[in-house]
């Protein structure tokens, strides 16, 4: 059951979110990763995948986009890479809510902006690159 790496291609539609999370959870569970880490990784991936589906492909005018999800476990690191060919978008360049924003009473908050924040906070390393016409969003979780 223990695999070193695996990938699968999903249609870039919201109905793929649960299958993507399940794909990650199945791999991580087979590698005995603790539940809390699996949850946080799934949350991070879900947030970025949602952005690709809701903004990346629509803005590029592509209605049959896909997301390739790769997962691997090596040297005490669990690594997920999402690849898509939507509009180039670097989540790291997007502004994050400040600590002051997060302390604001909910009545004064803007309704957006939390997704990328959650994605970046939920993994040990988040990275992005644009290569050969593809966005590559990279998530790394350290395993003790």
């Amino acid at each position: 059951m223990k695999a070193e790496s695996k990938f699968q291609i999903f249609d870039a539609v919201p109905d793929s979110l649960e299958p993507i999370r399940d794909f990650i959870a199945a791999f991580a569970t087979a590698n005995n990763i603790e539940r809390k880490k699996i949850f946080k990784l799934s949350l991070a991936v879900d947030e970025i995948a949602t952005n690709i589906m809701n903004y990346g492909y629509p803005l590029a005018g592509i209605d049959d986009g896909t997301i390739q999800v790769s997962i691997g476990y090596q040297d005490k690191q669990l690594k997920v890479v999402l690849e898509d060919h939507a509009m180039p978008f670097n989540p790291i360049e997007k502004g994050m809510p400040t600590p002051e924003d997060l302390m604001k009473p909910v009545e004064d908050r803007p309704i957006g902006g939390l997704g990328i924040f959650l994605a970046r906070q939920s993994v040990d390393l988040f990275d992005y690159e644009y290569r050969e016409g593809k966005n590559r969003n990279i998530f790394v979780v350290a395993i003790d």
Binding site: L43, D46, T50, I111
Partner: peptide, 16 residues
């Protein structure tokens, strides 16, 4: 068992 920011936005909306 799972809530992403899409769900959190609904909580913020409700509270507002």
């Amino acid at each position: 068992s799972f809530m992403s920011s899409a769900g959190l936005r609904m909580l913020i909306f409700a509270k507002q």
